[in-house]
């Protein structure tokens, strides 16, 4: 099943491109001209995205390098352990919605230290895979279309992350222990 899925993933993109071009040819769409036209728009999007992304990444970098993020983790960790949450996983849980690269390095570190087949290694793997970097996604998507009032998107995103973390712990405990 997994092998099959990987094969599908590899074949999917080239086949999709082939499919699009075939249909375009049948419908007599000038594919190259339209592609270039759309590509220009893509470039424009990327450039307009830069200030938003740069601002957010710098803010997160300041937060991390100053040690404020670590302090926050230390502050929250005892609360999490008090409710039966494995203490080692707390940093990952807190950092996951904030910074994708940081979360990935924490996950890698945990798998390295505790071993991929340990309870913590499995938990870190599940947590890393089951939620995405909320802050990054909101910045990119809202930034690209120039929306500054995010409404309740951030709130819902963070609540969902929180649920995801709890659900990961429950599921991994239930399946592997």
């Amino acid at each position: 099943m997994i092998q099959w899925m990987t094969v599908v993933s590899i074949w999917l993109v080239p086949c999709m491109i082939l499919f699009i071009l075939l249909i375009a040819t049948i419908k007599k769409v000038p594919a190259y001209e339209v592609f270039v036209e759309g590509g220009k728009e893509g470039l424009h999007l990327a450039i307009s995205l830069l200030p938003f992304l740069l601002g957010m990444m710098v803010a997160i970098a300041i937060l991390r390098s100053s040690g404020a993020l670590d302090a926050l983790i230390q502050l929250i960790s005892p609360v999490l352990t008090a409710v039966g949450f494995p203490a080692e996983i707390a940093p990952l849980a807190i950092i996951r919605p904030i910074s994708g690269t940081a979360a990935l390095s924490v996950t890698t570190e945990m798998i390295q230290t505790y071993g991929p087949d340990s309870f913590l290694g499995r938990l870190a793997s599940t947590m890393q895979g089951s939620t995405d970097t909320t802050l990054y996604i909101l910045t990119v998507y809202f930034g690209a279309v120039g929306i500054k009032k995010m409404g309740e998107a951030l709130k819902v995103g963070l609540i969902a992350d929180f649920i995801g973390i709890i659900v990961s712990v429950i599921i991994v405990t239930w399946i592997f222990l």
């Binding site: 491109i17 769409v29 990327a46 740069l54 990444m57 997160i60």
Partner: peptide, 30 residues
């Protein structure tokens, strides 16, 4: 981090140009 953001956007630019272009073709083709 400012440097990193610029690098990230350049990386994003390549996929954005390719896929937005491709999707435009898909859109035109219905």
């Amino acid at each position: 981090s400012a440097d990193e953001a610029v690098t990230l956007v350049i990386g994003l630019a390549s996929i954005l140009i390719f896929w937005v272009g491709m999707m435009r073709v898909a859109e035109r083709a219905g």
